[in-house]
C-alpha cells in the first residue's frame, strides 16, 4: 500500500535526518521503533505531507504523495507527537471544526461522528470544557479522536502512548488494534511493548537509516537461543562490556541484569532466555553503534 524509496532528508542545518529510507508498508499495524532523535518524526511528517523530503519518493496506492499531497490528505488521519490547541475552544467545538476541515460538511453526519467519537475516547463528560485545560492523557485521547475522523485509509500516530497511564495506554492500543485491521496504521514509538502488542510488521530506525524490517516474530526468531542473561555486581559491568556483546543492562530489585548475545553461553553463570523484541531492538542499537564507532 504505502511504499517509500530513497527518502532522504537533510535539514538546512546539515543534519541528515533521513538517509535513503526504503519501506513497503502493507495493510495492518506497522510499528516504527527507534530511539529519540532517530528520525521517526521526520519520517512521519514526510508521509503525512507536512514536510517534503530532500529526495526520494513516497507512494500510497496510486497516489504520488509528494506531487499530489491533497489526494493523500483526503484519506489521512494524523496524530502528531506533540500538538497545541486554540485557547478557550471546547473539545466538542474543536473536533467539530476539524471534522469540517476533514470534509464532513453534512451537519447531521458530523454531529453523529463527533459525538460517537467523543464517547469512544472517553471524553464525553468533558466535551464542553476547553481542550487547553486537558491533562496529557485527555489531550492525547482528543488527538486520537481527531485522527480517526473521516474514515481514513492511512493513520499515522507519532509516539501516541507517551504520557498515558497504563490503563489509558491499554484502551488506546485496543482502539488502534480495532481500526488497524483494514487500513494502514503506522505507529512510531520508542516503547517496544507497544509494537510487540500491536504490530504485525515493524522497522527499526537508527540515525535516519532503516536497519531492520519484518514481522516481529520473524525478527525475534533470528535471535532464538542466542540471548543470555546474568545478574552481576554493578562494579563489574564495564568489564563485561569490554569482553562480550552486552546488548542491555537493567536493574531488577536493585541488581544489575545484563543481556548478552552469543551463539553459546559466554561463561559460567549465564542462563538462556527467550528472545523478545526488546532484545532484538537493543541488539540492533548495540551493533549499529559499534559499527558507527568502528567507522
Amino acid at each position: 500500500m504505502l511504499s517509500l524509496s530513497g527518502v532522504t532528508h537533510i535539514y538546512p542545518t546539515g543534519t541528515r535526518a533521513l538517509d535513503n529510507v526504503a519501506l513497503e508498508i502493507p495493510k495492518g499495524m506497522f510499528g516504527l521503533l527507534g530511539p529519540n532523535g532517530a528520525g521517526k518524526s521526520t519520517l512521519m511528517r514526510c508521509i503525512a505531507t507536512l514536510q517534503t523530503p530532500s529526495q526520494g519518493s513516497i507512494r500510497f496506492g496510486d497516489i504520488d504523495v509528494l506531487a499530489e499531497p491533497e489526494r493523500l490528505r483526503a484519506m489521512l488521519g494524523y496524530l502528531p507527537q506533540d500538538f497545541g490547541v486554540y485557547p478557550r475552544v471546547s473539545a466538542y467545538d474543536l473536533l467539530d471544526h476539524l471534522a469540517v476541515l476533514k470534509g464532513i460538511a453534512n451537519r447531521a453526519e458530523r454531529k453523529e461522528a463527533v459525538e460517537t467519537l467523543l464517547a469512544q475516547v472517553n471524553l464525553w463528560n468533558v466535551r464542553k470544557l476547553p481542550v487547553a485545560g486537558f491533562s496529557g492523557g485527555m489531550r492525547q485521547r482528543f488527538g486520537i479522536a481527531q485522527a480517526l475522523l473521516g474514515n481514513p485509509k492511512l493513520v499515522i500516530v507519532d509516539e501516541p502512548t507517551a504520557g498515558l497511564d497504563p490503563e489509558e495506554r491499554n484502551r488506546f492500543n485496543n482502539l488502534l488494534a480495532e481500526i488497524g485491521e483494514n487500513i494502514v496504521v503506522i505507529l512510531s514509538t520508542h516503547i517496544v511493548d507497544d509494537v510487540t502488542d500491536l504490530c504485525s510488521r515493524t522497522a527499526i530506525i537508527v540515525d535516519g537509516r532503516i536497519v531492520q524490517v519484518g514481522a516481529p516474530t520473524e525478527l525475534i526468531a533470528r535471535l532464538k537461543g542466542r540471548v543470555w542473561q546474568k545478574t552481576i555486581p554493578k562494579a563489574e559491568l564495564e568489564d563485561y562490556r569490554a569482553r562480550m556483546n552486552v546488548i542491555s543492562t537493567r536493574l531488577r530489585a536493585g541488581q544489575t541484569v545484563i543481556h548478552v548475545v552469543a551463539d553459546e553461553a559466554p561463561e559460567h553463570g549465564f542462563e538462556p532466555v527467550a528472545a523478545e523484541l526488546e532484545d532484538l531492538y537493543f541488539a540492533t542499537l548495540a551493533s549499529t553503534r559499534r559499527r558507527a564507532v568502528a567507522a
Binding site: 503525512a48 505531507t49 490528505r73 476541515l101
Partner: peptide
C-alpha cells in the same frame, strides 16, 4: 498554537 500539524494534514 502548535496545532498546524493537525489542521494542515486535513483535506481542506
Amino acid at each position: 498554537r502548535r496545532i498546524h500539524e493537525i489542521v494542515d494534514a486535513t483535506a481542506a
